[in-house]
């Protein structure tokens, strides 16, 4: 671990101030479940770590007129217990899928949205794009856990966020502040993620001096049904190899609106627009979900070793849809 300064702001303005120094070579710390690993392996080397845990405006979950605001310091545990979130089943299911008590206790929802890819080339020091002499290590190497969508450019890792698919399906926004002290913007989460073209670009649109303070969820209408399905190999600390989150507006058993978002299959969360459109106007049955899942993966472009992820993703979509309408075999949950 490289030496770094440690800063502990108590207000959002102070946090922005601290983040802006050192030409923005700074990092935000809340739960630290990802940052600490990156620091220890020298994968990131910020000159200052800004600990936001003492910025009280970023604590807690609150109902607002048009929805719910979740602070950047809210841990998975706190979210699981929050009555404000009981209608957002897909998100609670993902918390439940974090079968690590440590991760539930320390990790934050906003931190999850901002975490770096788990690509082993990146974590072993080959940079975000894992290029060596201009060639992609991922393309010619071991890409079993890499992207099957959106992988034609230099970025072939998968977005590490487990909550982004659920939040995006719910049409969530993130509140971004900085780099100017008074700057504040609510960004639809689906536009928050970015696919880098160079090693120095990040995986989100955040610029130096900016941070996410909250994530906002719209009011859940009574006809909205949501669910997630993550393909997890282990009953412990694990990351999904494919995942899907769905949010459906179901009236008289007919789907009126649908959003299907895939996780861990592309450098960003991957919205399956076409598949979602195919579901609208239909009942959710074994047959329709099979058809919709086929559409969701029909444009997949697997790499040399990850064709299996296409099938996994198909299964995740089917199961998330069935789970949303309580038709999933409980043994498969």
């Amino acid at each position: 671990m490289n030496p770094f300064e440690y800063a502990r702001p108590t207000t959002e303005a102070e946090a922005i101030d601290f983040l802006n120094d050192h030409g923005g070579q700074t990092a935000v710390l809340s739960g630290g479940t990802d940052l600490m690993n990156l620091l220890k392996r020298d994968v990131v080397q910020p000159q200052r770590v800004v600990d936001i845990k003492h910025v009280s405006s970023m604590n807690g979950i609150q109902r607002v007129d048009d929805g719910v605001l979740i602070g950047a310091n809210v841990t998975l545990d706190q979210a699981l217990a929050a009555h404000e979130l009981v209608e957002y089943q897909s998100l609670l299911q993902v918390i439940d899928g974090h079968r690590s008590i440590q991760m539930q206790g320390m990790g934050t929802l906003v931190g999850d949205l901002c975490q770096m890819p788990s690509c082993w080339y990146f974590r072993n020091g080959y940079g975000l794009l894992a290029l060596k002499d201009g060639a992609s290590l991922v393309e010619q190497g071991d890409n079993r856990y890499h992207a099957i969508f959106g992988n034609s450019g230099p970025a072939k890792f998968v977005s590490a966020s487990r909550f982004a698919p659920g939040f995006i399906a719910w049409e969530a926004k993130v509140r971004v502040i900085g780099p100017q002290p008074t700057q504040e913007e609510f960004v639809p989460l689906e536009y928050f993620f970015a696919t880098p073209k160079t090693n120095t670009q990040g995986v989100t649109i955040l610029k130096p001096g900016q941070l996410v303070t909250h994530v906002w969820l719209p009011i859940a209408k009574p006809t909205m049904k949501s669910a997630a399905y993550e393909v997890l190999e282990s009953n412990g600390l694990d990351r999904p190899q494919a995942a899907a989150s769905v949010c459906l507006n179901v009236q008289s058993d007919i789907v009126r609106e649908a959003r299907i978002v895939l996780g861990h299959v592309a450098p960003t969360p991957w919205i399956a627009h076409e598949a979602a459109r195919a579901l609208v106007g239909h009942k959710v049955t074994e047959d329709t979900v099979s058809h919709v899942a086929d559409i969701a993966v029909s444009r997949a472009t697997p790499l040399s070793m990850n064709d299996y992820k296409v099938q996994m993703t198909r299964a995740a979509v089917k199961r998330a849809l069935l789970r949303a309408v309580d038709q999933l075999d409980p043994e498969l949950v």
Binding site: N37, R99, S118, W120, Y121, R123, N124, Y126, K132, L137, Q140, G141, D142, E233, S234, N235, G236, L237
Partner: peptide, 21 residues
């Protein structure tokens, strides 16, 4: 990894061991 010649899962995250469940 054939390209780099490295043991790319040499950590407790990606060297996968079963949990009690």
């Amino acid at each position: 990894d054939n390209t780099t010649g490295r043991y790319i899962n040499a950590d407790l995250d990606t060297y996968r061991l079963p949990r009690i469940g």
